[in-house]
């Protein structure tokens, strides 16, 4: 049955995953490095690219945090889809708002 199948997928989250401290430290180092890049880029005069660079880096950092520290990596598909939908809608808000701001 479609429904039971789905419930099973939804309900059985795999709790047995273990992540070594090594991975966390690597991710943390990555975050620190990205922060360093953000600061450096802010110091250079890139014009409107500054904002773009800062936002791109922020996005990568957020994904890393969500993926590893918030355990999205180990969640099942439904949760991942939900998060993707939320992000997509948020992105849409941004793009449409900038269709005003950038062309005013």
């Amino acid at each position: 049955m479609e429904q039971t199948h789905e419930s099973r997928a939804f309900g059985t989250e795999n709790h047995s995953h273990t992540v070594g401290y090594g991975t966390y430290i690597m991710v943390w180092l990555g975050l620190v490095a990205l922060t360093a890049i953000t600061v450096t880029v802010a110091g250079m005069h890139l014009g409107s690219l500054t904002l773009l660079a800062a936002l791109t880096i922020a996005c990568i950092k957020t994904s890393l945090v969500a993926y590893y520290f918030m355990h999205v990596k180990f969640d099942n598909m439904v949760i991942k889809v939900f998060i993707a939908v939320c992000l997509l809608i948020f992105l849409t808000f941004w793009i449409l708002t900038f269709s005003d701001l950038s062309f005013r």
Binding site: I89, T92, L96, D100, F103, R104
Partner: peptide
């Protein structure tokens, strides 16, 4: 429904591009 909010703002001083898109 998420993509159309700008139609409340056609005379607000929003950019022409945004007005056409919305």
């Amino acid at each position: 429904g998420y993509l159309v909010w700008g139609h409340h703002m056609f005379v607000s001083g929003m950019s022409d591009t945004a007005r056409i898109v919305f």
